[in-house]
Design a protein around this nucleic acid. Structure first.
Lengths: 279, 279
DNA sequence: ACAAAAGTGTTTATAATACACCCATGA
DNA sequence: TCATGGGTGTATTATAAACACTTTTGT
């Protein structure tokens, strides 16, 4: 589905520090930034659960670690002079190409056994990492999970130096992930469901113009239960956050639905107080 | 109001590492644990916002740093072999004496400027800390905020080696706190309000037996708005989580209210789905 | 013309809201 | 006995839920 150049760079400097390329535009074939562990906050990482909506299904972006059959949620480290939220935005931009993402911290994971030593050893050995770099990577890590809601069609997924494949998988087909990443994803989904009334799911995950049926499908996917068609329509229209456009005539043998877009100003104002679809 | 022995121990070992006593039972006048920075997760701390309810007011526990006129929310560090939640429970126990506290992570704070260098320098200088220990404490810190709900009357507040005064202050009289601790407290209050329907506020913050009026006052304090007396009573009774006891005859010149206690089993079952007082 | 899905309408049940009434208690 | 706040009742309104009817489209 996706085409990209595999590009990989890894080296160790004379002090034994671990250097690696953390971001590169594959198409331009050049590294954007090079840094070493001295510039990173130790023991602290960020993991991004990126959720999109495609073919009436919620999907999460996962990446396969290079040379290994291990899937992970995209993550990264924090620069010592960089705020945590900023780091999350940076990491996300590298993976999706999206510039102003919706991004929200949802939980911090700090169990001692969240990264099994044996498991991480296998990973880092496969990258030929050893010495101080290995020590640094093998230290106890606490990670903060960020939830991002995106429009899959706007994402040009890029791989990076550590992974050789990226894909969107529907929530009920997530394979076993590295470390505690399954738990991190589950936690993000819970957060999405619980905070639904305060999250801009429609504006972030749907294309600019959409039908009410599509919006309903999105809500149903998140809530994991069917909603009444008529009631949904009436309720969402009553909120006065949608702008009606021309009819969408592409569909099947049935009445053509209207296309709508969000009135961003009204939508955001309403989000502050929250609005609900519990039924 | 509270009586305690001031007890303070601080030293530096031959490698320049910073040793300090992080916990002691003041009454028993002995240190429970001694540790140094080599055993701590670097750059990661925990801050506890402990909320109680007294005289119809929500109150938060703050402590004054020894030798300084600086107030903070009780916090601490994490052992390298200790889970983050466990660290929070440990820290909380030292400060309140409560054994099985309600404790929940609410947010992680990772801005680069959350600890002003100048401010922290003043603090650590006042403790005569220098060398590697100072470096360790001056590093970039990311902190995870934990919310704890307690019954103030069950807390025997203990001070520790770093502070010489602890007190409960009502939420609208919080003084200026060190670093970003005001922001941390505000964030905790927001969380409490938002998650109200899923938090065991009644069970944690009220005494075993209480009147419905007291419970209503608690909810009103959190929501910051008055609730209808009759409706509140009917609604809470309909939930079938209260056990009615004898009448409370201490009050004023009026009909004596019943005392109630929670049916913990039913209460906890109901909490999972959440129950609301939005009005 | 017909099936399918959109758009709209209607009825019923449930919950929120406001406020009224009577009761028990201590001063 | 009277002021005070507790317990309960009721009427009104708003929202949720279920489902029926009509309209528009492609085949």
């Amino acid at each position: 589905m996706m085409q990209f150049y595999k590009y990989f760079l890894m080296c160790t400097n004379d002090t034994g520090n671990f250097f690696y390329i953390w971001s590169m535009k594959i198409k331009e074939s050049k590294a954007e930034t090079l840094f070493d562990q001295d510039k990173l906050v130790p023991g602290q990482s960020i993991d991004c659960v990126i959720i999109g909506f495609e073919n009436n299904e919620l999907k999460v972006l996962i990446q396969k670690l290079m040379n290994l059959n291990k899937w992970v949620v995209p993550g990264g480290f924090i620069f010592k002079d960089e705020g945590m939220d900023h780091a999350a935005i940076r990491i996300l931009k590298e993976r999706t190409g999206i510039d102003l993402p919706f991004l929200e911290q949802f939980k911090t994971f700090g169990d001692t056994d969240r990264r099994k030593k044996a498991e991480s050893m296998k990973v880092y050995k496969s990258f030929n990492i050893s010495g101080p770099a290995l020590d640094w990577l093998q230290q106890r890590f606490i990670t903060t999970g960020y939830l991002s809601l995106v429009d899959i069609n706007k994402c040009s997924i890029q791989s990076d130096s550590l992974s050789d494949e990226s894909k969107w998988v529907s929530l009920d087909k997530i394979p076993q992930l590295l470390f505690d990443h399954n738990q991190i994803v589950d936690s993000a989904i819970d957060y999405l469901k619980n905070q639904l009334n305060y999250l801009p799911v429609g504006i972030e995950m749907l294309p600019k113009k959409f039908t009410i049926k599509e919006l309903q499908n999105l809500y149903e996917s998140i809530l994991k239960k069917p909603l009444d068609r008529g009631n949904f329509q009436r309720k969402i229209l009553k909120l006065d956050i949608l702008v009606r456009h021309e009819k969408h005539l592409a569909g099947g043998a049935h009445k053509a639905p209207f296309l709508y877009s969000f009135d961003h100003e009204k939508y955001n104002k309403l989000l502050e107080q929250g609005f609900g679809f519990n039924s």
